[in-house]
Design a protein around this nucleic acid. Structure first.
Length: 856
RNA sequence: GUGGGCGUGGCGGAAUGGUAGACGCAACGGACUUAAAAUCCGUUGGGAGAAAUCCCGUGAGGGUUCAAGUCCCUCCGCCCGCACCA
């Protein structure tokens, strides 16, 4: 491969079928992608979110991994010691679904999927260090997860408590939110119930403040992701206070009702109290009141997802209780159970102020409760509330009204005053609250990491001793019965208590797969270490310099990983709390949808255009072209990367994925675009063929200039992940080369090859070899540019009259206003446009624009 | 419902508040060819005009500015997340 004799000049087409495997083998033989710690070189850790092994890669993977690969290859060329690993997020529900539906074992299914996908990834020519491959379902991986969980327990980061799950009463199974469709189980169709289960939680809320504050330091993360995390954590400064409650006979209850609010300033506008259906008081009343119990069941049918709860019509049931207003003796607030109050947030109880909260207003209108505005724009003593709540709070322009001693105060001052008084009365205190909830990690499923805990009748919860790790998943399980196979296994869960030695039972729940993906990036530093993370390796490689993945992970995966790094720090497993230095979220791959007359979705590969109309290739029936949507199995608007790579080659697929569309935006896959990329490859091949034939190196000054300008621009664009712009520059350089006479091209062609090499690595190697250049492109340094060649001595400046472009002028660079004015004012177009009107202002933006302001 | 984002020619898109439409695709015209494909050259936001040139134009409407795709306000449309999909 390193032959120095130039290949025979060829006008044949570039053949990816022979070239791509050839160069993939050359890279593998040279082991160029195997990363080794080397303190003498700067490191660069580039990571793409690892895939779930579904069996086949999809276009989203192609896009994600191409971006990471371009960066890895570019940084390597720039002299960095690059770590670019790959692994498998291998636990999860689809393997169990395959087991239930097709009778295959999750392990066999998963590993054969991994093999298939690995082959597909290899055909993409990715510069991955496969020696560091990880599968999270490997006991060699998850044993460390179990060990760290035990350490977390010891560090007080783990809690066991009751929480709610979706329960399918027919299948006798816990359902994931996505398995609940319109309140029914996806397989059984039964109405889903909420059920309470004892579960394990990781105390992410212990770090809520730090996770929030540290967002400021993540300046290489997209602002939108930081904002989303900030809102998700949801820090609020409010008050927790309590009402005295009496029943309909006027009898005072022993227990007060505690609520949480961030709008204590609106206390005089309160017209009701609302409790979560799961509030202890509601449960107590429901035991005696069938209508309340019925309401609880109705709310339970909404499932556990916040979305379904918030979308539901605001409803409630009166509990027959009244809360005494703390400042207005005669005011009694009816107490309801309501479906929009969440037990997991605050106290699970609120007071409703309809005039200034939309949900409260909807509720008040439905139950004909009073709506009294207590905040209004300054100077408007009384505003009318229709169907929209008045929610302005900012500054001194809104003030309290109808609020006794608060009248005239700003919202902030009113809050302060209420807080002071309530504290004085000892009925409440200021309280910072977070929307963020602790992380429930128990899953009632087989295909996950076993939770290393034993339940003993005498000793209670006993952690599995480290010597007992890994707690391995048994392989002899069946899926003929609904529910968790670990629970049905005849022997697995029966063990002796490590503490007292008596008969005890293993925990049969497994971990949420988000745990697996919350530390894999650290494991990649030392994938074969006997501890979870080898400190020396982690100190060299961490943090991830560039993390790339879908924006759909903006909150959960990324927040859990940030928490995990902190928890690992506390237990001595990691030395830094922010794992991802820089984050990039790429857009989705979308495609047209096709459907037939029966409304069935049709694969794009089965659709064909005849006389401008789309028809089914095999049957000829007419097809309807639907919207351009995210590629999905359900809409069948998928294009198989394997087919594309076989037909056009990996470089075509890679080039297409990077061209035109900015990486953070959704890209539409089109066959025309793929062909365009393929044609450009052939064009490069011809340019290189001609360049090889003319080994002269007499670049014209113009071509030399565009070569250096292109190096500068492409370098800058790749550093900023602006792949589409880098590609536009490469097109420009290719055009400039084509326009030059062949004997002047050689040097420019060599640079061109180096510049597109990160994007189309196979083509680059083949071209390099054809040009007779020594070595592999992959080990060739990135080209350098001469800054002196980037500046032009002449510039074209636009001339505007009153902001409208009227003329342009070519002048020496750096002219001052005084030098420009005489040149500009005598120009025909300027004289004509001014039409004798006096000049009011003469504005110059150096080297860019002149704007002459005159009377209109 | 709620949190976040996006919106520019026929299409994908480019544009530190400073010449809107770089670059690519498609289309059209031409060269080459017996012919087609491929390739190469040219044109291409809309409107008026013979031309010079002028008017309009970045989802809609307002505003700030000498100057707005870019900044501010209101609205419309589409997309993503919502804690057990990964």
């Amino acid at each position: 491969m390193n032959s120095k004799s130039p290949a025979p000049v060829s006008i044949e087409r570039y053949n990816h079928r022979t070239a791509e495997p050839k160069w993939q083998k050359a890279w593998a033989d040279a082991a160029v992608f195997e990363a080794k710690e080397d303190a003498s070189r700067p490191k660069y850790y580039v990571l793409e979110m690892f895939p779930y092994p579904s069996g086949r890669i999809h276009m989203g993977h192609v896009r994600n991994y191409t971006m990471g690969d371009v960066l890895a290859r570019f940084r390597r060329a720039c002299g960095y010691n690059v770590l670019h690993p790959m692994g498998w997020d291998a636990f999860g529900m689809p393997a169990e679904n395959a087991a239930i539906e097709r009778g295959v074992h999750p392990k066999g299914w998963t590993y054969s999927n991994i093999e298939a996908m690995k082959g597909q990834l290899k055909s993409m020519g990715l510069s991955l260090d496969w020696s560091r491959e990880i599968a999270t379902c490997d006991p060699g991986y998850y044993m460390h997860e179990q060990a760290m969980f035990l350490d977390f327990m010891e560090a007080g980061l783990v809690e066991r408590r009751v929480s709610q799950v979706n329960w399918d009463p027919v299948d006798q199974t816990v359902l994931a939110n996505e398995q609940v469709i319109d309140g029914r189980g996806w397989r059984s169709g039964a109405i889903v119930e909420k059920r309470e289960l004892a579960q394990w939680f990781l105390k992410i809320t212990a770090y809520a403040d730090d996770l929030l504050k540290a967002l400021d330091g993540l300046d290489k993360w997209p602002e939108k992701v930081r904002l989303m995390q900030k809102n998700w954590i949801g820090r609020s400064e409010g008050m927790r206070f309590s009402f005295a409650v009496e029943d309909e006979t006027g009898k005072l209850r022993d227990e007060r009702l505690t609520v949480y609010t961030t709008r204590h300033d609106t206390i005089f506008g309160a017209s009701f109290c609302a409790l979560s259906a799961d509030h202890p008081l509601v449960k107590e009343i429901a035991a005696k009141r069938p209508d309340v119990e019925a309401f609880r069941r109705e709310v339970a049918a909404l499932g556990t997802s916040e979305e379904s709860i918030e979308k539901a019509e605001k409803k409630g049931v009166f509990l027959g209780l009244y809360a005494r207003h703390p400042f207005s003796k005669d005011v009694m607030l009816p107490v309801y159970a309501a479906n929009f109050v969440l037990m997991g947030y605050g106290e699970g109880a609120i007071f409703g102020c309809p005039a200034h909260d939309q949900r409260d207003l909807d509720f008040a209108r439905k139950y004909k409760l009073p709506v009294l505005p207590v905040v209004a724009p300054k100077g408007e003593a009384n505003i009318t509330i229709g169907t929209e709540a008045f929610t302005d709070t900012e500054g001194d322009n809104v003030v309290l009204v109808n609020s006794s001693f608060l009248d005239g105060l700003s919202v902030d001052k009113a809050k302060e005053e209420i807080a002071r008084r309530m504290e004085e009365m000892s009925i409440g205190e200021r309280r910072v609250n977070f929307r963020l909830r602790d992380w429930g990690v128990s899953r009632q499923r087989y295909w996950g990491c076993p939770i290393p805990v034993i339940h003993c009748k005498a000793c209670g919860i006993v952690p599995v001793p480290h010597s007992g790790l890994p707690v391995q998943l048994p392989e002899d399980v069946t899926f003929d019965k609904p529910g968790n196979p670990l629970l049905h296994h005849p022997t697995w869960r029966h063990v002796k208590c490590p503490s007292c030695g008596e008969a005890a039972e293993r925990e049969t729940d497994t971990f949420d797969t988000f745990i697996d993906s919350s530390w894999y990036f650290a494991r990649f530093c030392s994938p074969h270490a006997t501890s979870p993370v080898d400190e020396k390796a982690a100190r060299y490689w961490m943090g991830v310099d560039q993390y790339i993945g879908g924006v759909e992970h903006a909150i959960l995966h990324l927040l859990y990983s940030r928490f995990y790094a902190r928890a690992m720090m506390k237990t001595g497993h990691l030395h830094l709390k922010e794992p991802f230095e820089s984050l990039f979220t790429q857009g989705m791959v979308v495609h047209e949808t096709f459907s037939n007359a029966a409304g069935e979705w049709v694969l794009p590969a089965e659709a064909q255009q005849v006389d401008g109309k789309w028809v089914h290739t095999a049957t000829g029936e007419p097809l309807t072209v639907g919207g351009i949507e995210k590629m999905s199995k359900s809409k069948r608007n998928v294009v198989d990367p394997e087919t594309i790579i076989a037909a056009y080659g990996a470089d075509t697929a890679r080039w297409f994925m990077l061209s035109d569309t900015p990486p953070e935006r959704d890209i539409e896959w089109t066959s025309l675009g793929a062909e365009g990329a393929w044609r450009f490859i052939q064009r490069i091949w011809r340019i290189v063929g001609e360049g090889a034939a003319e080994p002269g190196d007499a670049m014209s000054p113009e071509l030399k200039k565009s070569v250096h300008k292109t190096i500068a621009a492409v370098t800058d664009d790749l550093e900023g992940l602006r792949f589409n712009r880098a590609i536009a520059r490469i097109y420009e350089l290719a055009n400039a080369i084509s326009a030059a006479p062949p004997p002047e091209r050689r040097g420019a062609v060599e640079t061109l090859v180096l510049l597109f090499a990160p994007m189309m690595p196979h083509l680059a190697e083949e071209c390099w070899w054809t040009l007779g250049m020594p070595g592999l492109v992959v080990t060739t340094p990135w080209p350098k540019y001469d800054p002196a060649l980037l500046v032009d001595d002449e510039v074209t400046m636009a001339i505007q009259i009153n902001g409208k472009r009227r003329d342009e002028i070519k002048v020496a660079k750096g002219l001052k206003k005084e030098e420009l004015e005489p040149l500009v004012m005598v120009r025909d177009a300027v004289v004509r446009s001014l039409d004798g009107k006096p000049v009011k202002k003469f504005i110059v933006v150096p080297d860019r624009i002149v704007n002459i302001v005159c009377a209109p």
